[in-house]
């Protein structure tokens, strides 16, 4: 799973009632509220702001409203999946069409065509099970797997991915 420390900028608007000694604290709190926990197709999942550049830049008063705008530079901890990346995850649900793997906040769909070639869907147990004699490998809720991302769709506030378990060194984690 690819985590990054990324340098970003964000414009924060502040109401005039906050123009007092605690203004810097308020500006930073606004930044945290606006960014932490957000998802973007561009930078991925923003987990936390880890550093805000000091000193804060001077604010600019917006004509008409009296609000001030601050353009802040900050470093954030983000999780951003990439096409072609191999990562580990935990199976969150299983259907006959494939499995959904949770990789932190990201859900990766692995279609039945992309599960390991020795596995078949077992109707009675609602899981994929290995057909090889003596193999206990199963894909069921809670199984830890290693997959490669083979397709991704990113839009403004959402990321969706499809993956494969069908290749050497991918599949159920031992």
């Amino acid at each position: 799973m690819a985590f990054f420390i990324l340098e970003l900028t964000k414009s924060v608007t502040v109401h005039p009632r906050h123009f007092h000694a605690k203004l810097p604290d308020h500006v930073i709190n606004r930044l945290l509220t606006l960014t932490e926990g957000t998802t973007s197709g561009l930078y991925g999942y923003l987990l936390a702001v880890v550093e805000v550049e000091r000193p804060l830049p001077p604010g600019r008063i917006l004509p008409g409203t009296g609000h001030a705008i601050f353009r802040l530079r900050y470093k954030a901890l983000v999780y951003r999946p990439f096409l072609g990346e191999v990562l580990d995850g935990v199976i969150a649900s299983v259907t006959r069409h494939g499995v959904f793997v949770a990789v932190g906040p990201l859900s990766v769909f692995v279609s039945a065509r992309n599960v390991p070639s020795d596995m078949e869907f077992d109707d009675s147990e609602q899981c994929f099970a290995s057909v090889v004699q003596g193999s206990e490998d199963r894909l069921e809720v809670g199984t830890m797997v290693r997959l490669r991302i083979v397709g991704m769709r990113r839009d403004a506030t959402e990321i969706a991915a499809v993956g494969t378990l069908r290749a050497d060194y991918l599949g159920v984690l031992g």
Partner: peptide
Amino acid sequence: MDLGVDQEENAENLKFGELFG
């Protein structure tokens, strides 16, 4: 299910786009 391939980015050959590259 085909989500389309992003030409600009591919971890297999270390292409991460402008921001992450």
